[in-house]
Design a protein around this nucleic acid. Structure first.
Lengths: 210, 210
DNA sequence: TGACACATACCGACCGTATGGTATGTCTTT
DNA sequence: AAAGACATACCATACGGTCGGTATGTGTCA
């Protein structure tokens, strides 16, 4: 209950605990509806600690987006979809993996930076830009595999690039999350990923086999 | 400046002015960050008028979603994409139309109910459900054309339905809006609609010609 | 026709609480 | 001793919501 002060093994973790609380609460209630007190209570720290680590609520928003970028990039870097030796197989495995991790409560699998960007794009440019860096930094990792697959399959299609397809993949994910929220059903997000998978197979002229 | 009281031609419009203000401000700042005072100022009414028409801020959120459903369904019903006699041409024209109206400031073309659902899905089920009704009510109008196109083109594909494709179309739109906000560039939303158009043509085995 | 009852549409002062943020002190580690 | 990492008390304001009141329209019946 009370914060340990002597020989505390948790000392120095207040910042990370606040960032974890921000990740969880903002995904559930949104940025504006999340109060500093909410975060302090969830992280079991006082307001003094909050404003010691973050100059303002908006600064925490930026830090939370950066934290999200760091933790998710480590998570996806270690994910199993990188296994296949063929780049196209990795791209398709990415989609399947994203589909597989859509489970449980909505706030557990939806995207923090998508949620925040939606809310603050006009009122907090610093947070918006941090969200953009996180989101497009992630699409860039997929773009590399798409580009390799393009070359390997000799795709010379005009009208789309690896960059745009990587971004489209992210758009389908983000849009799926919104439908899942509006319909209160995670299956709505998975459904769109099925369409995305079919689309990618079409672009590379492959069918059900790998 | 002051509200007219005698022989007022505006009398009785407070409710609609508040709903229009809600539509504009919530799309810009989000639901939680929009205060009742913000809405009253923008609509040029007092708090008394607000709580006369809406029992609570949450009730206004529900009414705003319903208002959005009414106004957008009238807008899309009158839109030119219904012109073609072939159902598939209408579906493709819908996508092109959605792409065409993505212009100007982000808050002018993005979706109110998508924005609200994102924020309140867990904290205000009444608003969330109103958003869901608006969103899926709209996809249902597209579903009819898709189903007609399916039959006309003899598409017997398993794995997708008219309903799921209509919803996917909405997901691509919503996701495109999020990317446009995160990247602060409307072109990101149009880009995903290009992919969607290409996907739909693939599903119906048509190329660039109609 | 006019008086009365009632309903609707607003007005604006007020209330209790929650909010983001600050000022200052204390403990711990280096 | 100095700096980082908190804790505690406090502040001004903004928030959603309430309440008593007024102005205007509307239906009814003698």
């Amino acid at each position: 209950m009370s914060r340990p002060t002597k020989q505390s093994p948790e000392r120095g973790n207040a910042r990370i605990r606040l960032l974890e609380a921000a990740r969880d609460i903002i995904r559930t209630k949104g940025f504006a509806a999340t109060s500093v007190d909410d975060l302090c209570k969830a992280a079991d720290v006082t307001k003094g600690a909050f404003f010691h680590h973050f100059g303002s609520k908006e600064a925490l928003g930026v830090a939370a987006a950066d934290f999200w970028a760091e933790t998710t990039s480590a998570y996806f870097a270690a994910a199993p979809y990188h296994g296949p030796s063929e780049p196209l197989a990795r791209v398709l495995a990415y989609v399947v993996f994203r589909k597989a991790i859509i489970a449980g409560e909505l706030q557990e699998f939806t995207c923090l930076v998508g949620t925040m960007a939606q809310e603050v794009f006009a009122s907090a440019p610093d947070i918006r830009d941090a969200c953009g860096r996180s989101m497009f930094g992630h699409t860039a990792t997929l773009e590399a595999d798409i580009e390799m697959a393009r070359r390997e399959h000799g795709i010379t299609a005009t009208g789309w690039t690896a960059e745009s397809l990587a971004r489209h993949t992210q758009a389908v994910l983000q849009g799926g999350f919104i439908l899942a929220k509006a319909g209160n059903d995670p299956a709505l997000a998975r459904e769109s990923l099925d369409h995305l998978e079919r689309y990618i197979r079409h672009l590379f002229n492959v069918t059900e086999d790998d």
